[in-house]
Write a protein that binds this DNA or RNA. Sequence first.
DNA 1: GTCTATAGTGGGATAGAC
DNA 2: GTCTATCCCACTATAGAC
Lengths: 229, 229
Amino acid sequence: MNQAIETVDQGNRVQDTKERILDAAERLFAENGFATTSLRQITAEAQVNLAAVNYHFQNKESLIRAVLHRRIGPINQRRFDLMDALEFAAGESGPMVLEDVLRAFLLPVLEARTSCPEMRHWPRLLGRLYTELHGSLMELFQREMAPAAQRFTAAINRAEPTLSPEGLAWGLHFGIGSMAHFLAAGELLKFISRGIVDPDDHMEALKHLVAYMAGGLRALRTENKEAAQ
Amino acid sequence: MNQAIETVDQGNRVQDTKERILDAAERLFAENGFATTSLRQITAEAQVNLAAVNYHFQNKESLIRAVLHRRIGPINQRRFDLMDALEFAAGESGPMVLEDVLRAFLLPVLEARTSCPEMRHWPRLLGRLYTELHGSLMELFQREMAPAAQRFTAAINRAEPTLSPEGLAWGLHFGIGSMAHFLAAGELLKFISRGIVDPDDHMEALKHLVAYMAGGLRALRTENKEAAQ
DNA sequence: GTCTATAGTGGGATAGAC
DNA sequence: GTCTATCCCACTATAGAC
């Protein structure tokens, strides 16, 4: 009709193409990894032209960057909302429960698989990310995760003040590893448990992961160090 | 000189070529991953001809298989030796300490990086393995790891009888994830700890990992389930 | 903005001389 | 068993018509 509407239409179609590429890339990267997924697979799945990916994103690395960037913000926003609620409930100097903090950290990732359809593949992608990314991509990820790392480190410290900075770092790292491994290789749970555990039950996973991380972190408190060794 | 020595020489050269390929492949797979490492890189590093890899191993997948197979046996043998000693010390019905069992599981992997030069890259490779392998390679790995999985499941159960089979499976899976993530992405620890933790101190890592896993597993005991949630 | 066609690269694998 | 040379394929990226 008029120019304004034409612009909007064009804009929507662009959005559509870009997002279809991002969706397809997210799914395939999650399923098969970054290195083994080709742009051809992505454009085929997204039902767009091969050249579109180079037009909208310059190259494969920038596409990976865009896929990651699109999700990190909302996930961390959800984490921060949950932490805001916790801190409001605890007040200035009230107690903070370690399990609650860990749940605020883990829930947004685990629920992504079920609650929000378009985030279905993020957890698995996150699982892959930690072992597959190198160089500039890893730096991007660290940069975007820094505020969350900082806030949760402080919150865990408030919940467990006797945990040393070193112990907290080890424990958080181990916990992220547990989460990532579960997200990327959940099928191994069927093997280890000989079929009695269902890796797709995310609320069960959350419950166990929260309990496990809390127990592990508490075991790293300084007063437990001699007992453990 | 004579035929016998010639044969030995030839035999050694063959051994040498095959092992040089395996060594180079192990290092490069560990460093850069399976998919992104090319046979050309491997043969260049091993200083052998490109065709040698296809002569001695049929193809890339078989080479990966051979790299994994070479290490799994000795690692698990060391684990079993440590478990033999533990079980001998505990006797028929004596107590078994969870931390000792976990140390028997983890030590052979962590010490590989330092004690035995030619095993230097195995830990990192193991870290990559869990998220990068698919299909037949994963099946090979599971098959070769099954005896260890079985024995350690039984030993943990003996140490912590109130741990349910489900809880044990979740906990073991989470612990393997912590280990794998530490091995594959130890540099992240520097980021998370803002530089105060050294990921290359393996004995420190072992101490923390044992304490963390033990604490995590104990938190999954049935009597703790309600307390945790 | 979208498409076709293709350049340019690097990979896995093999044939065949030595 | 080793090497050179090469085939063939898949990939990323781009040029240029529409």
